[in-house]
Computed example of a mutant assay.
Amino acid sequence: MSQQKYVSLEEAALYARKQKLSSIKEWLEASENAEFPDSMPKRPPNVYGCKWSEVLAPKTAPGCGRFVEFTKACEIARTLGVQTMSQYRELSKEGGRPSNLPSNPNLHYKDEWQGWAHFLTGREDTIK
């Protein structure tokens, strides 16, 4: 698909904020509605070569960084109901990961990272 028929990435991100679309699942569901603008791509990463997080509205307050700080990320992750890296990855694929959490928290928070068990459950044992 040609990018020329779509609005700019910045305009798509603004649309996501106005519509409060903060997950891939929410965006994809919105894109199936008749009210979804033709000028908006159904899958922005395919059109703009960006990450979903560059388009979706963050669940954090305006002016905050793209991702929450590590301690807050752990708190949020522990509410998702997943206990393993595999479950976290599957949740991300399904569009259930909040946009203010990175898809690879082990890389994003590498200086503070204490393992998947700590991130997802608060336990210190190793979870694969």
Rank of each mutant, 00 (worst) to 15 (best):
P105A: 13
H108C: 04
S39R: 10
D38N: 10
E32M: 14
R123M: 13
G122Q: 08
K5N: 03
N46Q: 14
Q83A: 12
T121A: 00
S86D: 09
N104I: 03
E26F: 01
T126V: 09
F119K: 09
T71D: 07
S22R: 13
A13S: 15
Q4G: 06
K42M: 04
V68M: 04
Q19N: 13
T84N: 06
A77M: 02
K20Y: 08
G115Y: 01
P44M: 09
K18D: 11
F67W: 10
G96P: 00
W52V: 08
K5H: 06
G95V: 06
G65R: 07
K110Y: 10
K51V: 04
E35G: 07
F36P: 01
S2N: 14
K110W: 13
E69L: 02
P62Q: 15
V55Y: 06
P62G: 12
C74H: 05
E75C: 03
L80H: 02
K59R: 08
M40A: 05
P58Y: 04
N46L: 15
P41R: 08
M85N: 11
R89M: 05
K51H: 12
P37G: 04
V47D: 06
P41G: 04
G96S: 00
Y15V: 07
F70V: 02
N33S: 09
G63I: 02
L21D: 10
K59P: 01
P98N: 08
S2W: 06
A16D: 00
P105S: 12
A34R: 14
A30P: 02
A34W: 15
L28E: 15
V7A: 09
M1V: 15
R123T: 08
W27Q: 10
L21P: 00
Q3N: 11
Y48I: 03
T84P: 05
C64E: 09
C64W: 01
C64N: 13
N46C: 09
W52Y: 12
Q87M: 06
A30S: 12
Q87K: 00
R43M: 12
E69K: 05
S31Q: 10
I24S: 03
G65D: 11
L28R: 14
P62H: 13
S92I: 04
F36I: 05
E54K: 14
E90K: 11
I127G: 02
Y109K: 03
L21R: 13
C74G: 03
D111R: 15
I24Y: 05
G81W: 01
P58V: 01
R78Y: 02
G122V: 06
V55H: 02
Q4W: 02
W52C: 10
N100F: 06
Y6W: 07
Q3H: 06
K25G: 11
E29I: 14
P58L: 05
S39T: 12
K51Y: 05
S31D: 07
L56W: 00
P45V: 07
V68D: 07
T60A: 01
D111F: 10
E10H: 10
K59N: 13
G115Q: 11
D125Y: 11
W52K: 08
P41Y: 03
A30C: 07
T60R: 03
P102F: 03
K72V: 04
G65L: 14
N46R: 14
S23W: 08
G95K: 05
